[in-house]
Design a protein around this nucleic acid. Structure first.
Lengths: 338, 338
DNA sequence: CTGAAAGCGCTTACAG
DNA sequence: CTGAAAGCGCTTACAG
C-alpha cells in the first residue's frame, strides 16, 4: 500500500490546501471544476481513498449501524436472519450506512455488550434481533438516548418492528373454523418470547370470540422445538376427546406434530388438520405440504433500518412501533371437516 | 449520554494524566493497583467506555474484519452464509476482532467496493464469500498487500478455504459404483464457479478411473437451480440408453431431478439412484430422503477467520490454501442395482 | 472558491 | 509507576 495516501499527500501533489482536497471527497460543491478534476486524477493515480476512521472521529458519526443477532443452531433463525439482513442492507446501502454484526450468545447475559458498543462510537444506532424479555440493558440504552430498534420482540416502552402475530394467529384459527373445525388444539412456543405469548393469547381470544371451547388439555408447550412438540403432542392423543385441528406456533413444531399423528395411525388432514407459522422453506416440501402463516421478513428488516436511520437523524422520537401484516398460505395439511 | 465521557474527563476527576487512564483501559500492566481501581470506579460511575474510533485512528488498526457476502435469493446460500458467519464470529470474538458486513450484488461489478473498503482503514482484512471467477479487483487487492481470504472460490494465486469438492464428488461416484451402478449421469452447476467446475472434473476423472463410460448425453447443466435441473433432465430420459444413477452438483437440483423421474413414471431409488451435494436441511425431508455430500461449513468459517487473522498479524504469508474434507451422508435415494 | 488554525479522543515514543 | 508532547487523518468553524 502506498504509504502516503493521505489528504496531506494529495494536497501537496496538487498544490492546494488539505481543505480543498477534503471538500472534493466529502462531495462538497464549492470547488472549482478544474481543481476538483486535478485532485481526482492524482487521487486515482496513487490509489487514494479517504480514511473513514479519521472522518468518523472528526464528524463524531460512524455512519454505521450495529446488528445484534442471536447465535443459535436453529435453522429457521438462520434463514430469518439472512432475510432480515438482506432487507436491512438494502436500506442502509441506500443511505450510505455500513453494517457491523455482533453475533451474541443469549445464554450468557451480554447486555453489557450493547452498552459498551453504544458508548464506543463504533455505531450510530443498533438493531436488536430476538432479544429475550428481561434485559435491563435496554432500559439503560434508552436512558442514554442511544437509538435502537427491536425486531422479533414486542415491548411498548421501546421502538420495535415485528410481524403482527396476533392477527396472523387469528387468520389461522378462523381458517380452521371456516373449514368446520370446532375442536382446535394449540401448541405454544417458548413463553419467554413475546411472539409465543402473542400467539397464545390470540388463540385464546379468537376461540372465545368464535364461542369455541378452550380446554387446558388442548394447550401444550412445544418450546419452538420439533422434538419437544413431537414429545408433548402425545398428551393430545391420550384423551378421549380428540381435537380435529391443531395450530402450531411454528412450522418445525407442526412437522413434529404431524409425525406423531402419522405414528398414531391417523392421517393429516383427513383425521386432523394442522397449521404452522413462519412459512419456512421446508414447509412446502413435507408431506403433506403445510398450511402456514407467512411473515414478511425482509420487509421487517427494511422497516427496522429505515426507522433506525430516522431515529439517528432525529426525524422521529421513540417509542415508535409497527406491526406488519402476515399472510395465510393454504396448502394440503388442512381440509374441511367431514 | 454524558457529554464529557472521555479520557480527559476521567483523568481530571481522578487527578492523573490521560496516559494513565489510557493505560487502564488498554489493559496495560504498569499502573498501580490503587490508581487503577480509582479510575475504574469513576469510569463506571459516569458510564465511560473508550472511543474505539479514536483508538483505531491512533493505532492505525481497526480490529475489524470485513465480510463480503453475495446478495441472492437462494436459500441454500442463506443457510450457508449464516453457518459460515457463525464459524467466523466464534474465532473473531476470541481474538477481539469485530465484524463488518458488506452484502454485495454480484450482478453489478462491485470490485471497486473491495478496494475502497480496503483503503478506507475501516477493516484490517476481508473475507470474500463466493466471488465470481474473473474479478480483477482481487489482483489489485493482492498488489497493495491487503490481507484477504476467499471462501467458496478456489484460485491458487490467492488465499482460500473451501470444501474439497473433488474428493467429495469422488466419494459420491464411488458410492454409486459400489452399489453396482455403471451408467452414471451428471448434472452440473453454473460453470462460472470453481465449485461447479471441480465437481464436473472430478466426475470425469473418477468415471475414467473406474473405467466407466462418459457420455456427452449424460452430462447436463442445471446451473445450480432446481427448475433448470428439472427442465434439462428431460433430455436424460429421451434417450434409449438410460442412466441408472444421477449425480447432481447440489441438493436443489437433485430435488428437481427426482421430481422429473417421478413424473416419468419411474421410481427413486428402485429405477434410478440420485445423489446430491451440500446436505441442506430439506434434503432429509424430501421423499425419498436424499443421499448427499456434507460440507463442514462452520469449520470453513473458522479456518478462514483464523487464516485472515494470521495474515493480518503477518504470521503467515500468502498464498495459503486449505481444502476441508466432506462426508457422504447415505439416505434413501440410492440403492443397489438389481 | 480557497485556506490557516484548532480539534475529534485516543496512542506512541520518550523521559524520568 | 507516571506524564508532557506530538501525532493519527480527517472536519469544523472561521475568515477572506
Amino acid at each position: 500500500m502506498l504509504k502516503k495516501s493521505t489528504l496531506q499527500y494529495i494536497a501537496e501533489k496538487a498544490k492546494v490546501s488539505r481543505m480543498t482536497v477534503s471538500r472534493v471527497f466529502s462531495g462538497e460543491k464549492n470547488v472549482s471544476k478544474k481543481t476538483s478534476e486535478k485532485i481526482k486524477k492524482i487521487a486515482k493515480r496513487v490509489g487514494y481513498h479517504p480514511n473513514l476512521i479519521a472522518r468518523s472521529l472528526s464528524k463524531r458519526k460512524s455512519n454505521t449501524i450495529g446488528i445484534f443477532v442471536p447465535k443459535t443452531r436453529h435453522l429457521f433463525l438462520d434463514v430469518y436472519i439472512t432475510q432480515l439482513l438482506s432487507g436491512i442492507s438494502d436500506v442502509t446501502q441506500e443511505h450510505d450506512f455500513r453494517l457491523m454484526l455482533f453475533p451474541i450468545d443469549y445464554k450468557k447475559s451480554e447486555s453489557d455488550l450493547y452498552l459498551s458498543i453504544a458508548r464506543s462510537h463504533l455505531v450510530d444506532g443498533i438493531i436488536l434481533i430476538k432479544t429475550k424479555i428481561k434485559d435491563d440493558g435496554l432500559e439503560e440504552l434508552k436512558s442514554i438516548k442511544f437509538p435502537f430498534v427491536l425486531v422479533n420482540h414486542r415491548n411498548n416502552k421501546y421502538n420495535f418492528i415485528d410481524s403482527n402475530n396476533i392477527k396472523g394467529t387469528k387468520l389461522a384459527i378462523e381458517h380452521l373454523y371456516n373449514l368446520g373445525h370446532r375442536k382446535i388444539a394449540f401448541v405454544s412456543g417458548s413463553l419467554d418470547e413475546t411472539n409465543a405469548i402473542d400467539r397464545l393469547n390470540s388463540y385464546k381470544r379468537t376461540m372465545k370470540k368464535l364461542n369455541l371451547p378452550i380446554k387446558k388439555e388442548w394447550i401444550i408447550n412445544g418450546e419452538f422445538s420439533k422434538e419437544k412438540a413431537y414429545e408433548e403432542s402425545k398428551k393430545l392423543f391420550n384423551q378421549k376427546d380428540l381435537p380435529t385441528a391443531i395450530f402450531c406456533s411454528d412450522d418445525y413444531m407442526a412437522i413434529g406434530v404431524i409425525e406423531r399423528i402419522k405414528e398414531s395411525g391417523l392421517s393429516v388432514p383427513r383425521d386432523i388438520s394442522v397449521v404452522g407459522f413462519d412459512n419456512i422453506e421446508i414447509s412446502s416440501y413435507v408431506n403433506p405440504p403445510l398450511t402456514t402463516v407467512h411473515q414478511p421478513i425482509s420487509m421487517i428488516g427494511e422497516k427496522a433500518a429505515n426507522l433506525l436511520i430516522d431515529l439517528i437523524n432525529e426525524k422521529k422520537s421513540p417509542p415508535i412501533h409497527e406491526l406488519l401484516d402476515t399472510q395465510l398460505v393454504i396448502r394440503k395439511s388442512t381440509s374441511r371437516m367431514k
